[in-house]
Design a protein around this nucleic acid. Structure first.
Lengths: 337, 337
DNA sequence: TTGTAAGCGTTATCAT
DNA sequence: ATGATAACGCTTACAA
């Protein structure tokens, strides 16, 4: 194991002072061209690499983003999660930031936990991905100091957290309008996990649009459970048991839609002739199922990028008040409707 | 922003020496019960949190694993990747390690890059996920020192890297045997990206098994391109153009299989009656396509966990020579065959 | 068992 | 433009 090369080594080699070396490396403009060249040369010769721990200790920052995501055991968000992560990594890289990943136990994250993390200095800002609840600081000056924390997917502005997500209502409006244009008048909504905020927002978006069209009386809600395929399958059983079956089904996620469609086809009904089905998320497989699935594509990659940007803005005070950033989704009509 | 609490603060509060505080916190057994209690009490009162940078600097380690993955833009491995990541995070957490994520540009990672990272101290071991090539150290003592690096998915033991992956050949043997038992005698193999090692290994596994059964003359190979669905679709076009169509198709991934099946069904052929199709990976959607897809499930979560274990073994010298760890997959027969 | 003190490698503040 | 030097907060021999 080759001994680590330090600034002191470079100082010795060049005869310059250690502080000059440091400067030459971190602020090349604050040093003569001559020494800059010399230092760079010797540094690369000796294979110098900045010791990050030392830098962090001295600077008091870590240039690291901590990504906190609920144990993604429910496969539900995981595919979406991957895309988000990609966006986050790309943006972080371009900003010279590191990304640290940590799963969290439940659906709720508390400010005190996050503050603890920030205090250790492992990271100096935090990204919450698909976290349901946020417990604001409880100690005295609650909320006075704005934390460098951003929520992805879940609108937590009400709890004081800047949030980045898809403009979901728009997506569901597009779905409803499309189905109505296709002549459908009776609808079912396959919901996600009970009590999940998203779930509620999405259902309301559908119902609200239908009510605008005078059709909200024609909406049945089916319990879907987790955002996954088995839940969709289960919902389909309830659906098949209905005496008056709606002709169009709107699902809370693509996974639910796929599970639902699978069961419907299995039962001998035809899609979209007997039942039209729409999903939500924009999973890659939706374009290749048979029939292919009408869905709303979330701008996941962009969400990841934007979240990081907002996070840095927050971190260096360019944003001082919580805000919601909602990105437009895109609607794709496919064979299932 | 509440000023950070340091060991010095605790020392002042308790009247004890700073080193005693440090000991009480990190090696509670090396201190009297009395002081231990006192320190713990005051620490939690003041909300003390260890400064990681300082600890790392002092200890010379970071307790961090760097996960390096090729820009997952080709959606190909991404779903699998998520699962791997989950396993990695879980195991890391249970070992008290942090996980840092970084995308890398190409398919190749060089030892010098990794060594640079290790020297900065951001991480003290590295996990390569789906990295195609490894450029061993070029400087003098090449390969003398064993690096704390593990490859996931790709067997890089030949380049001196301990690797963790699925026992893929077993999976393909299972597929072949199953198809033969079903009466198939003519086969097509839809390959992955050209020149990718995996691709070759998998094809060989199929061909070898067929040759054992005296059927290797009956194998057609179709170029699939990237491990994704559009590629599968494209391969299906070549397939449909064949004058003598095989009755069974083995795909290099589930994504390819899905794309392939979509095109086949679109063309009016029936699955499995006209064409039997098998995939590989065990994506969740395979159980819910119509027809559902026969496939081989990779033990992704377990791979992630094991990789971390092996990595730590490597890191503290319990493993001194590169080895291959191949985990058994499981084969699921579904409607598509 | 507890205290003393010497690092760990950088950065930043002053002088020069 | 460069050099000395004091932090940064923790760990760890070594001494008491």
């Amino acid at each position: 194991m080759a001994k680590r090369v330090t600034l002191a080594d470079l100082a010795e080699q060049t005869g310059l002072n250690i502080s000059t070396i440091s400067r030459a490396l971190s602020r090349p403009d604050r040093v003569s061209t001559e020494t800059r060249r010399l230092v760079e040369k010797v540094a690369s010769q000796l294979g110098y690499a900045t010791n990050i721990a030392a830098r962090n200790l001295s600077r008091g920052t870590s240039d690291t983003i901590l990504v906190l995501a609920p144990s993604f055991e429910g496969q539900a968000i995981s595919p979406v999660f991957t895309q988000i992560l990609l966006g986050v990594c790309e943006e972080a890289k371009s900003l010279g930031l590191n990304v640290m990943l940590q799963q969290c136990l439940g659906q709720t994250v508390s400010a005190s936990d996050v503050i603890r993390h920030l205090q250790t200095g492992v990271a100096d800002s935090v990204l919450l991905v698909a976290v349901e609840n946020w417990l604001p600081p409880t100690d005295g000056h609650a909320g006075e100091t704005i934390l460098p924390v951003v929520s992805i997917f879940r609108d937590l502005t009400a709890s004081g957290l800047t949030s980045v997500m898809t403009q979901e209502a728009d997506g569901y409006v597009a779905i409803v309008d499309h189905l109505v244009a296709r002549g459908h008048r009776q609808f079912a909504f396959v919901s996600g996990p009970e009590g999940m905020h998203h779930e509620q927002v999405r259902y309301n978006a559908v119902r609200h649009r239908l009510s605008q069209l005078g059709l909200d009386r024609k909406l049945v809600r089916l319990e879907g459970g987790p955002f996954d395929m088995p839940s969709g399958q289960k919902a389909a059983e309830s659906f098949l048991a209905l005496k008056n079956r709606p002709s169009a089904v709107i699902c809370c996620s693509d996974a639910l839609a796929l599970g639902f469609m699978h069961a419907i086809l299995d039962s001998g009904l035809r899609v979209p002739d007997d039942v039209a089905i729409a999903g939500f998320d924009g999973m890659d497989y939706t374009a290749f199922t048979t029939p292919s699935l009408t869905t709303v594509i979330q701008p996941t990659l962009e969400i990841g990028r934007v979240a990081v940007q907002v996070l840095t803005d927050l971190h260096n005070g360019r944003i001082t008040t919580p805000r919601l950033v909602a990105l437009a989704p895109s609607f794709v009509i496919r064979q299932s409707t």
